Amino acid sequence: MTTADEPNPLRAARFWRAATALDHLPPDDGAEVAFAGRSNAGKSSAINTLTGQAALARVSKTPGRTQELLFFCLDERRRLVDLPGYGYAATSAARRRDWGETIPAYFAARQCLRGLLLFMDVRHPLQVGDRQLLAIAGELALPVQPVLTKADKLGRGALNSALRSVERALAEYPAVLPALPLSSLNGAGAQALRRQVLAWLAEDAAAG
């Protein structure tokens, strides 16, 4: 996951609290990086890979398992936030409506939010919900790092082709960084993503 000469500060992440509504959020200070993605896009596995912990985020074969905003703290001022997955057809209409309102409101309300990692299955990128999040982030000038998960499912040629296709599609969205591939199976791509997360979290010092 990391090389011997590159420590992983995200390994310090510990579960802190869960929030089901905006009035349950922790104080808006320090720096946060949020993790979003469709249900079953590999978001929980990716969190575990990035933090170097096997079970920090609960991995389930049941899509839509994460139904709250889950906060993981690195220290008193730096946090990772696991957002509810979206796009699972069996989720109730009321729950989908709640997520559709809560997540954009969270983006707009949190001054401490420094960036968003958007996880998409490399074989099925840029679904409707993904595009909706990109549009919302663009309106709020929230930086987004697209992550193509399950990169080990494709050969090198197919993976490069998928990356080029996603890059062309992302050109219409502002504040979006080049997409990066990630394999939670072998950790390929994790270092580049960790560096981006840590760069965003380091903005706390600049902002403060």
Rank of each mutant, 00 (worst) to 15 (best):
A55L: 13
P26A: 07
A89Y: 06
L201D: 05
A169C: 07
P143S: 09
R58W: 12
P174R: 06
A179F: 00
E139I: 01
T2H: 12
L177N: 02
A13H: 07
Q196R: 14
A188K: 02
V81G: 11
L80W: 04
V128A: 13
R14K: 13
T51F: 08
T149V: 02
L182M: 06
R14C: 09
L50N: 01
L140Y: 05
A4F: 13
G52L: 12
R11C: 14
P63K: 07
S184H: 02
V197H: 05
T149D: 00
G129Y: 09
A135G: 10
V81P: 07
R78E: 08
G189D: 03
P9M: 07
E172Q: 14
A135W: 06
S44N: 04
L25P: 05
E68P: 05
V166M: 01
D29P: 00
V144D: 07
K150T: 03
N160I: 01
G42H: 07
S39N: 08
A19E: 09
D82I: 11
Q145D: 12
K153F: 00
A105W: 12
T91F: 00
A135H: 11
G100W: 04
A4H: 12
W16E: 12
L182Y: 00
Q145T: 07
L118K: 01
P9C: 06
L154S: 08
A141S: 13
S184D: 03
L134H: 01
A179H: 00
